[in-house]
Write a protein that binds this DNA or RNA. Structure first.
Lengths: 108, 108
DNA sequence: TTGACATAATACCATAAGGTTTCATATTAA
DNA sequence: TTAATATGAAACCTTATGGTATTATGTCAA
């Protein structure tokens, strides 16, 4: 699962998917539980979850007949990596912040 | 020009547009200059520049018959703001980094 | 084993998105 | 003023995207 930069940016581009990530930040959820928070069918929510999984932003594991969806904070790494290219145009404080992110990605 | 979170995320979702931002990070460019770096028509590049402008990621000013496109680093703020919602799920180092970003957005 | 439940998968639809071509407009330079 | 240059805008095409409905599969509980 290479989770390309593109698949991650794409996953974040939809407001429903960003909303799902916030819900999953609170606690893990089954597909049905996620779907309760949105005004669309479970099938539509499931598609969004697939895109989020493709983007590496969530992980999914089976628990009986349910699928537990979990936020994957490390999945944001491609985004921060991409932003690091702009270091020279941000100030030092922001540059420090970038390297802190990168360190965090390694020590976990 | 409210540059909604959505318009900013959307602007970043296309690989050509991310490439344009990197080029503009080096120096300002006219539309024609940007277009030289991509294998598509000037009209297509112009559409991408419009999306980037809508997302607040670039600014455009006229210089005679040319339009000068400039990277707007502050345009990334909605992205970082959105990420800040995940502070509680990241570790302290990452949290520090987030607040550093927010401070940076204010002191400029 | 049977029925209910949770998810998977497929087909289908409407619209958005990325691209092209063509033509119009405004500015610059002879 | 005329020709070249730089951009703007509209029409159009193809594919991707976000959604639905329907049907199938696997699991749990009685």
């Amino acid at each position: 699962m290479p989770e390309s930069e593109q698949s991650t940016f794409r996953a974040l581009a939809d407001p429903t998917r960003r909303g799902i990530l916030r819900h999953l930040a609170v606690h893990d959820m089954t597909i049905a539980e996620v779907a309760q928070n949105f005004d669309m069918t479970r099938a539509a929510v499931k598609k969004h979850l697939t895109v989020l999984s493709d983007g590496g932003l969530i992980t999914v594991k089976a628990r009986g007949r349910e699928k537990i969806n979990t936020l994957n904070k490390d999945g944001f790494a491609p985004i921060f990596d991409w932003f690091s290219y702009f270091d020279a145009f941000w100030d030092d404080r922001l540059t420090d912040l970038k390297s802190a992110i990168e360190q965090d990605q390694n020590h976990d």
